[in-house]
Design a protein around this nucleic acid. Structure first.
Lengths: 147, 147
DNA sequence: TCTCAAATGATAATAATTCGCAAAGAGATG
DNA sequence: CATCTCTTTGCGAATTATTATCATTTGAGA
């Protein structure tokens, strides 16, 4: 699978790339580059962090993986390239996939916006996860001004 | 205007903040922190870049300005806090506003997704601007394998 | 005007990512 | 399989964006 994807992209098939692709595909946690690095390292103790960054970046540019950028901090990658979107907690930065069927349906067929040629749409829902909602309640009740 | 916004947030009204707010509100180019800094500097030669970062960040957290994160590079800020979205060229990183009325209509009223409490939605359309479309054509025709 | 928490400026520190380059490896060809 | 060429890798240094620290200043209410 990973091999075919690389072939299809016209890229050289290297063990590092195979491993990175597999790790990202298996990950369910939207890992960041460093995390992918740690996992790939178990198979390839000599792989370099730079290689992981380079590869993820190229894969994202090619649309093979999805790059989520929760406001702040580092980029997160998602091996799921099927149409789906993300909710991210603005407080703890947890990311979770969401499907918004109606939304995707609406976009299907839109190929042009003004002078821009549409490649894809990334929907990021800014939200508060359950845990952080509670924490925020507490903080709020003990301060004068909210927000 | 800027002053009322600060008052409304319950923040101290400082000349630096007034200036930053005005610059972001007037900007039509989704400037990054450093650019805002350069502009504010014309009025306040002694302002610190840290202040600009701090202020933009707090404004974004308060929902007063919109933070766009075009894949890669630095955050871009948009003074337009009315509901709207962004198209970003994946090649040159140009950002442009888009309105997607039907989309906003669809989201109105959605306050919860699973355990997440929705605060807002950011839609980023990955695209190629006209100029980059051409450049990409050329690159493509002179290489063996595209992408 | 006085007081004090909040905001600022300067600079150091950190974190994420990218760059430069030599060495190793992939894939095409004979 | 031997060879040639172009791509990819690993390493470490460099860069870039952002945040933290802290002494000093300043806004705003009493």
């Amino acid at each position: 699978m990973a091999m075919e994807r690389l072939r299809h992209l016209g890229w050289a098939v290297t063990p590092q790339r195979l491993s990175i692709l597999r790790v990202v595909a298996d990950a369910k946690d939207h890992p960041r580059a460093e995390t992918v690095f740690e996992r790939v390292r178990r198979e390839h103790p000599h792989i370099s962090l730079a290689t992981v960054h380079r590869t993820l970046e190229r894969l994202a540019a090619a649309g093979e993986v999805c790059k989520v950028t929760p406001l702040h901090d580092s980029a997160r990658y998602d091996g799921n390239s099927a149409p789906h979107h993300h909710v991210v907690c603005v407080r703890c930065r947890e990311v979770q996939d969401v499907e918004v069927a109606e939304f995707d349906h609406h976009w299907r067929g839109i190929e042009q916006i003004g002078e821009f040629k549409v490649l894809g749409v990334a929907l990021e829902v800014r939200a508060l996860c359950a845990a952080c909602q509670q924490k925020t309640e507490h903080a709020r009740s003990s301060r004068r001004i909210a927000r």
